[in-house]
Design a binder for these strands. Structure first.
Length: 117
DNA sequence: GGTCTGACCGGCG
DNA sequence: ACGCCGGCCAGAC
């Protein structure tokens, strides 16, 4: 057994977020709170958003499918270009108006529910 | 080593 | 209906 040292690997939290985001179906969106809750950190929705910041380094992660509780593309500014997020969403079939996802509630994809938590 | 912020959310006045 | 505040985790200065 190793010592009581923390795991030197990347933080599971980040990878967990990535895993969930990757599971988001095309044409669907989710919010930070849903992911946070799925991971068991409901109150730490901020952490999720921040994890996304690191996720930004992983271009394989559809971060554009993650919006805030209002369905607003709050993180669009963190993309390569402010239009990238909306552009990708529209390409996925998600209509975005004024940086806001249309029919957000219908497009909403809850991992805790869809994945059957 | 302490402090602050961060792609948030929900509650309260 | 709107604005403000606290809370959680982790990294950067």
């Amino acid at each position: 057994m190793e010592k009581s040292k923390k795991q030197p690997a990347e933080h599971n939290f980040f990878e967990d977020v990535y895993a969930v985001v990757k599971l988001i179906p095309k044409g669907r969106v989710t919010n930070y709170g849903a992911i946070a809750r799925y991971l068991g950190t409901a109150m730490s929705a901020r952490m999720v958003g921040w994890a996304m910041n690191a996720a930004h380094a992983h271009k394989s992660i559809p971060a554009h499918r993650v919006v805030n509780a209002q369905g607003l593309l709050t993180g669009k500014h963190h993309f390569e270009t402010p239009n990238a997020m909306q552009h990708r969403l529209e390409k996925d079939g998600v209509k975005v108006k004024k940086d806001k996802v249309q029919d957000f509630e219908k497009r909403f994809w809850d991992p805790a529910r869809e994945l059957g938590l």
